Amino acid sequence: MKKLLYILTFFISISAFSQTLYSVLEKKTIALGEPNVYKIRVDGLAGKTVQLPPKNELLPFHFEEISDSISVQADTYERVVEFTVFEEGKFTIPAFEVKIGDEVSKTIAYELEVINTAQKGDKINDIMKNKSVKMDVKSYWELYKWYILGLLALIALIIAIVMIVRYGKKRKSSPVVATNHTLKQLDQLKRKKYIEAGNYRSFYVELIDITRNFLTKQYRIPADVLLTDDLIDAMKRNQTISQSNEKIVEDIFLRGDLVKFAKTFPDKETMDKDFNDMRDFVKRSSKDLEFENLRKDV
Rank of each mutant, 00 (worst) to 15 (best):
Met1Ser: 15
Lys2Asp: 06
Leu4Arg: 10
Leu5Cys: 07
Tyr6Ser: 09
Leu8Arg: 02
Ile14Thr: 07
Ser15Lys: 05
Gln19Met: 03
Gln19Gly: 02
Leu21Lys: 13
Ser23Gly: 02
Glu26Arg: 06
Lys27Pro: 03
Lys27Glu: 13
Lys28Phe: 08
Ile30Arg: 04
Lys39Asn: 05
Leu45Ala: 08
Thr49Arg: 11
Thr49Cys: 03
Pro53Tyr: 00
Asn56Tyr: 14
Leu59Phe: 11
Pro60Gln: 00
Ser67Arg: 02
Asp68Leu: 09
Val72Asp: 10
Thr76Arg: 13
Thr76Pro: 02
Glu82Cys: 10
Phe91Ile: 04
Lys99Leu: 07
Glu103Thr: 11
Ala109Leu: 04
Glu113Cys: 07
Glu113Thr: 15
Asn116Leu: 00
Ala118Tyr: 10
Ala118His: 10
Asp122Arg: 08
Lys123Ala: 09
Asp126His: 12
Ile127Tyr: 12
Lys129Leu: 09
Ser132Asn: 07
Val137Gln: 14
Tyr140Leu: 15
Leu143Phe: 14
Leu143Tyr: 15
Gly150Leu: 01
Gly150Arg: 01
Leu152His: 01
Ile158Phe: 12
Tyr167Asn: 15
Tyr167Phe: 15
Gly168Phe: 00
Ser173Pro: 03
Ser174Thr: 03
Val177Leu: 01
Thr179Ile: 02
Thr182Asp: 00
Asp187Phe: 10
Lys190Pro: 06
Lys193Tyr: 03
Ile195Asp: 03
Ala197Val: 02
Ala197Leu: 14
Arg201Gly: 00
Phe203Gly: 03
Glu206Gly: 01
Ile208Asp: 12
Asn213Asp: 14
Thr216Gly: 06
Gln218Lys: 07
Arg220Thr: 00
Asp224Cys: 00
Val225Cys: 00
Asp229Glu: 15
Ile232Glu: 10
Lys236Gly: 06
Asn238Met: 09
Thr240Met: 14
Ile241Phe: 06
Asn245Trp: 05
Arg255Asn: 11
Thr264Glu: 15
Glu269Gly: 05
Met271Thr: 06
Asp272Ile: 12
Asp280Ala: 15
Asp280Val: 12
Lys283Tyr: 08
Ser286Asp: 09
Glu292Thr: 07
Lys296Arg: 12
Lys296Glu: 13
